[in-house]
Simulated scan of single mutants.
Amino acid sequence: MPLAGCGNSPEGPMKPGIYAYEAPDGSTHRMVFQESTYADMADNVPKPVEEGTWKRRDAQLCMTSAASGAELCFDEKAEADGGFSLSANGVTTRFSLLANAR
């Protein structure tokens, strides 16, 4: 039996799917969240600019980069339109739902 707060719990504002967001530099991206992985696709770039795995821990969404192994954890907040926001270190990024996972 898994421990509460560990693993890829379906509980939380982010649900697997495709989301749009704007990076701090103003570029637009699509974030694809699958059951346990993510891929960050910048517009007009054919391959992911970042990818890795995600899990929920201690009421946060934690993402681990496949390239560097670095883990970043974010506070999640649901948005009224089915999207969500992630916040860490005083920076909040808003994700708008484009498509649900199949």
Rank of each mutant, 00 (worst) to 15 (best):
A67C: 02
M14A: 15
K55H: 14
T64N: 07
T53H: 08
A66G: 04
M63I: 09
T53G: 01
P10I: 01
Y19Q: 07
D25M: 03
G90A: 01
D58E: 15
L98K: 08
M14K: 09
E50H: 11
A39C: 01
L98R: 11
N44C: 06
T53Y: 03
P24N: 09
E76C: 03
A101D: 14
E71I: 05
T64W: 08
S65H: 04
E22P: 06
K15P: 03
A39Y: 00
A42R: 13
S9E: 11
S87W: 07
A70D: 11
P13Y: 02
M1K: 14
I18K: 15
G52P: 10
T93S: 11
D75H: 12
D40I: 00
D75N: 12
C73D: 12
F84I: 02
G83I: 02
S87F: 01
M63K: 03
R56E: 05
G83W: 05
A67Q: 14
P48L: 09
G52Q: 11
Y38K: 06
E11M: 10
D81V: 02
D40T: 00
P48Q: 05
F84H: 10
P13T: 01
A88F: 04
P46Q: 06
H29R: 05
S27F: 03
H29M: 05
P48W: 02
A80S: 11
G69T: 00
R102Q: 12
A59Y: 04
L86C: 04
F74A: 03
D25C: 00
N89T: 03
A78L: 07
S9I: 02
S9A: 13
C73H: 06
S68N: 02
L97K: 13
A67I: 02
C6A: 12
F84P: 11
L72R: 07
P16T: 13
V49T: 13
D58K: 09
R94C: 00
K15E: 10
W54D: 07
R102N: 09
A80F: 04
A66F: 10
T93P: 07
G12C: 01
T37Y: 07
Q34F: 07
E76G: 04
